[in-house]
Design a protein around this nucleic acid. Structure first.
Lengths: 194, 194
DNA sequence: TCATGACCATACACTACTGTATGGTACGTT
DNA sequence: AACGTACCATACAGTAGTGTATGGTCATGA
């Protein structure tokens, strides 16, 4: 079958999602596409080239596209609620952790930096809109994001620990409650936000 | 130089800490030890054998040894405080994330499960001692542990996001405050613990 | 003393890739 | 009908590892 550069890029993203950056290898993907390396080296210069487009696709899917999809509601409280619902539901984003394990490679480090920055900034903006001070909003956004990342990692690396039925929901509720409520000290400038 | 099985195990743990399970390879470690694979295949049967002892060493260092070291104080509040200080200070435990990226491999999955279970149970016990209900203690322990894991991942994969001077300290404080204080609803059986 | 056994070096065969070079096929255009 | 070009298959050389087999060295104890 005749393949395009996009076909290879899509297959590379699938390989990235399943096996991490090491799995973005020419020969196995050629096999999955039922073709040979001859096709690949026509569309791409080398393996690094393929990983680059896969990373680009992952970055856009997991930041801009995601943020745009969730930014429908003007109310930041509802936006955060929907964001948490989404974040703590399925087990998407297996890529995140396999990339983090290769953060020493510069080509991976740059996209991790960009993705984390975009997501953290978005969370910070939501908390800011709720009336928190700059420092408080940033702190809460970072804690929320870190909890999300760790939750993903736990679910992937030790599912039995989170297997309790109520853990998944009660933790999400607890986290949301902790994040929204006002501690009532120097942490906020305008008290009782929203 | 004459080497023992322990020498190889130590070198394997170093390799694991630096490059993850893929770096626990015979030839590179032999090179690091200034010897050849002949020595290795005397002490071990194969590469999987070496990875196993490295994982065992990591597991004991990062759970039992750690917990024992921190369990000096009888006051659970102080114990948790010291635990957070330790957890959010240096950037130890790069292994955790590189292992999580290979959670699909059974021999790695079992130690991840054990480590997560031990740590989560320890946190849960601390919160229980503070007077929280079983469900509340477990939930808070899990959230605390997830936040710790995500914080590690963020610091590794996007250090610039956490580079603010106050982020490190203010977040740790915020997190500790959120975890210790009582929300005052069905979350606890005995109110205002400790 | 010298032989046994613990320990190491090295050659070999094997696997699984990458990248290059080169020839082949099939379709659109003229 | 023929040609150019876009695309694919494959052979080749190179790299980096695993595991085995086999021979070498060196200290210690009968």
């Amino acid at each position: 079958m005749r393949l395009s550069r996009q076909d290879w890029a899509e297959a590379a993203l699938r390989a990235l999602e399943e096996g991490g950056p090491d799995a973005v290898a020419v020969l196995p993907i050629a096999h999955a596409l039922a073709t040979t390396r001859g096709s690949f080296y026509w569309h791409f210069t080398n393996r690094a080239d393929l990983l680059e487009v896969a990373l680009q696709r992952w970055e856009s899917r997991s930041t801009d596209a995601l943020i745009e999809r969730l930014s429908a509601d003007p109310n930041p409280r509802i936006r955060l609620r929907r964001l948490f619902e989404y974040a703590f539901s399925g087990d998407h984003d297996v890529v995140e952790i396999s990339l983090a394990a290769h953060a020493s490679r510069p080509e991976i480090a740059v996209v991790l930096e960009r993705v984390a920055t975009k997501r953290a900034n978005y969370l910070e903006a939501c908390f800011s809109e709720l009336g928190f001070s700059d420092a408080a909003a940033r702190g809460r956004g970072l804690v929320a994001y870190a909890t999300y990342l760790g939750w993903l990692q736990l679910r992937r690396s030790a599912p039995s620990v989170l297997s309790d039925e109520d853990a998944n929901t009660s933790i999400a509720k607890l986290l949301e409650r902790l994040l929204i409520q006002d501690p009532g000290d120097s942490d906020t400038t305008t008290s009782t936000p929203q």
